[in-house]
């Protein structure tokens, strides 16, 4: 079994760099990268040249089996950037990986030419080359996935911020209408954002409207209670509005004591809030009429 016989791939790539680049570029003319319009020929030329230059540098280390090592950092960095860039153009992982895989043909051609008369040696070198190119190709897929994950995380964070709009209803009254399922993390973000708004607007009353919340579990109920308690410590009062019948039942069944002012609707809550800050809403046609009874 042939084992660690020094490979000639580095020497070959070094000696025939130009030829390799040209035949590789020739092959890629019809590749899906160009066909898709994601890159033009000049850019592809530039990419291929940069890859080969990094590839050449890494090969010089002689470590063809360890692309995770420090010697291959340049290649990995190039492939990550490349992958991310291509992903933004909407290319699929296989299209991106094909860029690397397409180097096989010209590289194999070089090897076949070199070892025309030594079949044993040729097969060893081809195997080495295959392993190497395969692992680099797979690396682009990994990089692709990673860039996608980064996008997802960023979007999640943006969604969290988007989903917690704290609005000023009146001078001294802020409200946060909660919509959708509340998980612990989101409730916490809401809580912090609400408390921060209380400070910046100087609002003494905060209305938390949960009309749009389908369910409330113990944890969420606790978060709500904690928000109310924290707001009180800061000197503001909370009113919870829009508690649905099911949620009221859940809260009672959970044994959570919701010692907080609650109102059926946001409108009721606003009316109460206005009264607390000393304002009343009166009908303009009949100014004598007192504000509606509670």
């Amino acid at each position: 079994m042939p084992t660690k016989k020094a490979t000639t791939i580095p020497t070959l790539v070094a000696a025939h760099g130009k030829q390799l680049l040209e035949s590789w570029l020739g092959l890629q003319k019809d590749s899906s990268l160009v066909a898709s319009g994601a890159v033009d020929t000049a850019t592809l030329h530039n990419y291929s040249e940069r890859f080969l230059s990094e590839f050449h540098k890494a090969l010089a280390s002689g470590r063809l089996d360890a692309i995770g090592g420090a010697d291959w950092a340049g290649v990995r960095e190039f492939l990550s950037d490349f992958s991310r860039g291509m992903a933004q153009h909407g290319l699929t992982p296989s299209q991106i990986a094909t860029f690397v895989f397409s180097l096989k043909q010209p590289l194999f051609a070089l090897l076949s030419h070199e070892f025309k008369s030594d079949a044993q040696r040729l097969s060893e070198e081809l195997w080495q080359a295959t392993l190497l190119i395969d692992s680099l190709g797979l690396y682009t897929s990994e990089a692709f996935q990673k860039s996608r994950e980064e996008v997802i995380i960023r979007q999640q964070e943006e969604m969290l911020e988007l989903s917690t709009p704290v609005v000023e209803l009146w001078e001294g009254i802020v409200a946060v209408p909660l919509i959708g399922t509340l998980d612990s993390e989101r409730t916490q973000v809401v809580m912090e954002s609400l408390l921060q708004h209380i400070v910046t607007t100087g609002a003494e009353i905060a209305i938390i409207d949960i009309t749009g919340v389908p369910t409330v579990d113990t944890l969420v109920a606790q978060h709500l209670i904690k928000t109310v308690a924290a707001a009180r410590l800061m000197g503001a009062d909370c009113i919870i509005s829009g508690i649905r019948p099911q949620i009221a039942q859940t809260i009672v069944h959970l044994g959570v004591e919701l010692s907080v002012t609650s109102k059926a609707t946001m409108a009721d809550a606003l009316q109460l809030a206005l009264r607390r800050i000393g304002k009343t809403v009166v009908d303009r046609k009949t100014p004598q009429a007192a504000s509606p009874a509670e």
Binding site: M191, E192, L195, Q196, I198, V199, K226, A229, A230, A231, L233, M234, G235
Partner: peptide, 15 residues
Amino acid sequence: VVVGMQPAVAITLVE
């Protein structure tokens, strides 16, 4: 009357 407690402080105290 205690005034001006910061939000982060209030959250932590409640916790």
